[in-house]
């Protein structure tokens, strides 16, 4: 069994190595939805997306996609009640999002500008922090992730291009945290090799 797995992994790896591959690094703006928006309502201007893909068919690529975004909001001096207790102060809220998934793209055409659609599946790790005064509440959750995607690539030269896309990270509900969405708007470079 172990040998079979190693063999399968070796064959898969050789496909990746021998096939044409692409690496992209992009700046990411995050737009929160659902529970994420309830906690931190602001856009995230602090984010990155890294992707490595390999071509398995003339119009189809598969690979991995890793991201990082920080959502942040300062809540003004306000009161929060629970039962008979009331707490008042300034709150600093953070959500550190780490989406990681395998995904596939279908590319339309071979012109200079190539639109594509994609779908990814994986997980997203959310490190949530709520700071009030000198106290801090930290929550960590792993969510199942399903991420549709669309975008386009523009050839700049034979081995470099510009990639612009939108990925909607649809994070499913967990036992401790509600579902949420994170729309990643990405712009960056795609390299034939890196």
């Amino acid at each position: 069994m172990k040998k079979s797995l190693l063999l399968a992994f070796g064959i898969l790896l050789s496909c990746f190595v021998s096939a044409q591959s692409f690496t992209s690094i992009q700046y990411t703006v995050g737009v929160p939805f659902g529970d994420l928006k309830d906690h931190t309502n602001n856009l995230s201007g602090r984010g990155l997306t890294f992707e490595f893909h390999t071509e398995i068919e003339p119009a189809i690529t598969v690979g991995i996609n890793l991201g990082y975004s920080v959502f942040y909001e300062r809540k003004d001096y306000d009161s929060y009640s629970q039962g008979t207790a009331t707490l008042t102060g300034v709150q600093y809220r953070y959500n550190n999002m780490f989406p990681m998934m395998v995904n596939a793209h279908y590319t339309f055409g071979t012109a200079t500008i190539m639109p594509y659609v994609g779908l990814g599946v994986g997980t997203i790790f959310n490190l949530r922090n709520t700071q009030m005064g000198l106290n801090s509440i930290e929550e960590t959750n792993w969510h199942f992730l399903l991420s549709p995607e669309l975008g386009f690539m523009v050839d700049v030269s034979a081995d470099i291009g510009i990639k612009i896309n939108a990925i909607y990270d649809n994070a499913f509900k967990t036992r401790d945290m509600d579902a949420f969405g994170n729309l990643r708007l990405n712009i960056g470079f795609i390299f034939m090799s890196f």
Partner: peptide
């Protein structure tokens, strides 16, 4: 936290 007064919390019960 930037200013020290932001660390003040008022709790009542």
């Amino acid at each position: 936290l930037v200013y020290v007064d932001e660390a003040d919390i008022v709790y009542t019960n």
